[in-house]
Write a protein that binds this DNA or RNA. Structure first.
Length: 423
RNA sequence: GGAGAAAUGGCAGAGUGGUCGAAUGCACUGGUCUUGAAAACCAGCGAGGGUCACACCUCCGGGGGUUCGAAUCCCUCUUUCUCCGCCA
């Protein structure tokens, strides 16, 4: 959520930069400013009405104390009108405040100047491509066939137990999952991130904190009996660690990493592109989250990109980095880099990580601040990224590392799997 | 799940209807003193709104109510603690 004060002071610039997202925000911005203006006017009126009430109340107290009951009662009868005024003003104020909030919720983050113009993923800017795309043997299979052939993942069993999109990993498939999680966590902690084990269900307040609520409610599984939500990403519990927190400047930066399963309803997505591990209702992901000083957040973003890059290099997977265009940028992000790995048998690039700087967009909602050098509370910047999401990494390992007589395990993972070949 | 107790500033902890945004201690910041540090002493020290700046308004777990007036009384929700039950 953008700060109203920022909108007030940078109106034209914001409108101009939101156009990068193909968003004509003029009316929206005007609306916000109108609500804000009206809200402040009512606030001022309400404040002075309350001040008057406070004065009278004090006076009444004093009159009672000095035994002037008559006078006190006269004064008392005067308050009813004032009370009515206050009530009306309060109602008007909360209406305006609510209206302001609703409008603010509609405005996405202002893109960083680096964000290219564009409408869809086709306009994303490829900034780097690295790694060798393997030449597969003639009978090479896509990962869902490989999973079946080597008995690594049982999709049908998942259908039986739960439903589509809840695969069952078994044997070496399960072990490979565990190996990847352990490897990712090790990489992240040695880069300075503190490992957390976080709840997989969150309350409403957390949903609002990271912006899944109120708009994206339909994307999460909702446990209605207890009004809790299954997390769609560790970003939700991980970032809400810092909800309503005021840090000391010297505590920055903070790095958090955690493995969680992620639950997404993904309503309405079916078809060839969601086969196998490509899109699931439940999947595993290791996330990295940073809280940064505003002056350092872009440096930190580059650092995170380098970190993810390093992991993909170690796994020897062919990958590319994309700087997302305005049309593909997520609502809360100011700048996002996507990582895609080439899945040789499907002959497709698969998104495996998304690294973003949210600047103050999340922290404004979260009320995540730090005490700056002047002793003032200032919103911190938040960033996060996947390091990494498992299913498509697994898919591309299976596909890219397949040979005629089995699937090789990437060298870096062998200490974690305890085997070097799936056959 | 049942019974009881509680929730106040970074922490501890006073405060049961008016002068309380809130005593006191600790922590923290600045100063005096000191070669330096410690101690001692002095001062400052929660958050949000509002204002050019003041004034002013709001916040004592969340929400609602009673009252001229609520940290204090009532209702409700949440959380914590103790006991019982259940349990990996």
């Amino acid at each position: 959520m953008l700060q109203v004060s920022y909108i007030r002071e940078h109106k034209e610039e914001i409108i101009k930069r939101l156009a990068i997202r193909n968003l004509d925000s003029k009316a929206l911005i005007e609306n916000v400013l109108t609500f804000d203006e009206e809200r402040r006017q009512l606030q001022t009126k309400l404040d002075s009405a309350k001040a008057e009430m406070n004065t009278i109340s004090k006076e009444i107290g004093n009159l009672f104390k000095s035994g002037e009951v008559e006078k006190a009662n006269t004064l008392k009868s005067k308050t009813s009108e004032l009370k009515e005024t206050i009530k009306t003003l309060e109602e008007g104020l909360s209406e305006k405040a609510e209206g302001l909030k609703i409008e603010l919720y509609k405005i996405p983050n202002v893109p960083n100047p680096l964000v290219p113009k564009g409408n869809s993923d086709e306009d994303n800017l490829e900034t780097l491509r690295e790694g060798e795309i393997p030449t597969l043997h003639k009978d090479a299979l896509p990962h869902w066939e490989l999973a079946k052939k080597y008995d690594l993942i049982d999709f049908e069993l998942g259908n039986k137990i739960t439903g589509a999109g809840f695969p069952v990993y078994k044997g070496k498939g399960a072990r490979l999952q565990r190996a990847l999680i352990a490897y990712f966590l090790d990489k992240n902690t040695s880069a300075g991130y503190t490992e957390y084990q976080l709840p997989h269900l969150v309350n409403e307040a957390s949903g609002f904190g990271t912006g899944q609520l109120p708009d994206k409610e339909g994307q999460m599984y909702h446990v209605t009996g207890d009004n809790l939500y299954l997390i769609p990403t560790a970003e939700v519990p991980g970032t809400n660690i810092f909800r309503d927190v005021i840090l000391n400047e010297n505590e920055l930066p903070i790095g958090v990493t955690g493995y969680t399963p992620c639950f997404r309803r993904e309503a309405g997505s079916y078809g060839a592109h969601v086969r196998g591990l490509n899109r699931l209702h439940q999947f595993d992901k290791v996330e990295i989250i940073r809280v940064e000083h505003p002056s350092k957040s872009y440096e930190a973003l580059d650092g995170m990109v380098g970190h993810v890059q390093n992991i993909l290099k170690e796994l020897k997977l062919p990958y590319r980095i994309l700087r997302l265009c305005g049309g593909d940028l997520t609502f809360a992000s100011a700048l996002t880099y996507d990582f895609e790995v080439f899945s040789a048998a499907q002959e497709r690039w698969l998104e495996v990580s998304s690294v973003s700087n949210f600047e103050t967009f999340q922290s404004n909602r979260l009320k995540l601040r730090f005490k700056n050098g002047e002793g003032k509370n200032q919103l911190a910047h938040t960033l996060n990224g996947s390091a990494l999401a498992l299913p498509r990494i697994l898919a591309s390992i299976l596909e890219n590392y397949q040979t005629e007589d089995g699937i090789n395990v990437p060298d870096i993972l062998i200490p974690y799997t305890g085997f070097d070949k799936i056959d």
